[in-house]
Design a binder for these strands. Structure first.
Length: 408
RNA sequence: GCGCCGAUCGUAUAGUGGCAAUUACACGACGCUGUAAACGUCGCGGCCUUUGGCCUCCGGGGGUUCGAGUCCCUCUCGGCGCA
């Protein structure tokens, strides 16, 4: 049977896991490394398709859980599939809902991020206390996870089979196995249990997808690639075990998910990518700060997605070559420069910091839109520049020059 | 002129004897990594050796009280009513 996607490696970098490639999908080519923008509910918040094209972004990742809740995966199918409804002719991915096992479960109501910053001991205890009094919205068991809707309290049970079925209905080019993203503050014992669960669920996701593909050669499923997700949290042995287990399953590509230590995200990624099959694409889920993208690329990841550019933009934080700034700060009140000097994005070519800061503070929706456009342009093109640098054998210099300025 | 009502953080408010004093907006700063997020947290009288301490404070002045934004007198200003 014809593979739904094809991954071609154009260049491997000696002495590193980095590579340059192309993922050919039914809706076009993803030149890797690439940054993929998040469009959770089949929309990139605040931006039209035309604006997205202007930022240079080529691929969007939407979310199965959220589209199931609203408007419903069957409705997406009835309306003609995700590409049609959102007027996006390029490649689309869907996340399986595995992240919501964390964000609406252990992470709900806490300020625990999947990225654990240093010195966690005191907050760690605190969060555990808070967790006791927070209502739980997710119950995990052997077969799947029961989600309680924060909106109306209804219960929705999602199994690996259900997740894949919904992703078939939604119709993205690349779909993900249903996994459990764990909180970074869970014990090793728990991480290990959760990992076993994720591995079982991966197998079930793969099996269900395979059956559907074979049942009907013309079904949408036959045009969809399925990626398995490596977990294992912050533990070397679990990460390696997961990479081996998932890597041996016949997925079309792999996602690297779960929680990380900010300090050694790159180490965790390397553990995994040294083991995963080289000839399949690897997507680093939910990672997208500039420093992290460099580390991901040089440690063998091909694609990335992250809410940071759009969320930060909406919240008034803007990427510049000299680091992030908050556009609402008084400091920029009379600053007539663009958000980032030399940037060729729509916001920078047409508007000043002072004006965009005014829009943001006045709650004009154009403010967050312009900041989102800029941030997306910034990150998408940063990764494109990494690709160029890899091809030109100047990656290390590009990285050190960029980071020297970016981190002041 | 008489009577009634009102005056509390930039604005609008809460507060009828224990108060550096409620809430909202505004303002200021910070946070955000597979979107519960156009959101959230903190600060917003001053100073300090800041899980605390000191000073100043609810239109002005005086009084009652251990203690007053809160009760009494008076003045100023504003609103309404009657002359």
């Amino acid at each position: 049977m014809k593979k739904p996607i094809e991954f071609r490696i154009e260049k491997k970098i000696d002495g590193s896991l980095a590579r340059v490639g192309k993922i050919c999908t039914p809706h076009g080519i993803i030149e890797t490394p690439a940054f993929i923008t998040v469009g959770t509910r089949a929309a990139v918040r605040g931006l039209t398709v035309e604006m997205l094209h202007d930022t240079g972004v080529e691929t969007i990742i939407a979310n199965t859980y959220h589209l199931y809740m609203q408007p419903g995966d069957l409705k997406v199918r009835a309306m003609g599939g995700i590409h049609k409804i959102m007027n996006w002719s390029g490649p689309i991915m869907t996340d399986s809902g595995g992240f919501q096992v964390f964000s609406l479960g252990a992470g709900y109501g806490t300020n625990v991020s999947k990225i654990l910053k240093s010195a966690p001991m005191v907050p760690l205890i605190k969060e555990r206390d808070e967790e006791e009094i927070k209502p739980k919205l997710v119950e995990i068991d052997y077969d799947g996870a029961a989600f309680k809707s924060p909106t109306d309290g209804s219960i929705h049970y999602i199994t690996p089979e259900r997740s894949i079925e919904m992703q078939h209905n939604i119709g993205a080019d690349i779909i993900f196995a249903f996994d459990e993203c764990t909180s970074p503050i869970e014990s090793r014992t728990y991480q290990s249990e959760a990992l076993d669960r994720t591995h079982r669920w991966a197998e079930r996701s793969l099996e269900y997808h395979r059956q559907k593909r074979e049942q009907n050669g013309d079904s949408p499923a036959s045009k969809q690639a399925l990626f398995g997700i490596v977990q294992g949290g912050r533990y070397e042995d679990l990460r390696k075990e997961s990479a081996k287990t998932i890597g041996e399953m016949d997925f079309d590509g792999y996602g690297i998910g779960g929680s990380f230590d900010k300090e050694d995200l790159h180490t965790a990624v390397r553990w995994v990518n040294e083991i995963l099959p080289e000839n399949k694409p690897r997507h680093l889920l939910g990672i997208g700060e500039p420093e992290d993208l460099f580390l991901g690329v040089e440690n063998g990841c091909d694609t990335f997605d992250c809410v940071a550019p759009t969320r930060l933009g909406r919240h008034g934080t803007v990427y510049t070559r000299e680091g992030k700034i908050h556009i609402g700060n008084v400091l920029y009140g009379e600053d007539l420069r663009p958000l980032d000097s030399g940037c060729q994005c729509y916001a920078c070519k047409n508007y000043t910091r002072a004006y965009i800061g005014h829009l943001y503070k006045s709650r004009e929706m154009l403010g967050p839109m312009l900041c989102s456009i800029h941030n997306l342009y910034f990150i998408v093109n940063l990764v494109k520049d990494m690709r160029k640098a890899l091809l030109a054998d100047t990656f290390q210099k590009f990285k050190s020059d960029f980071l020297a300025k970016y981190k002041n």
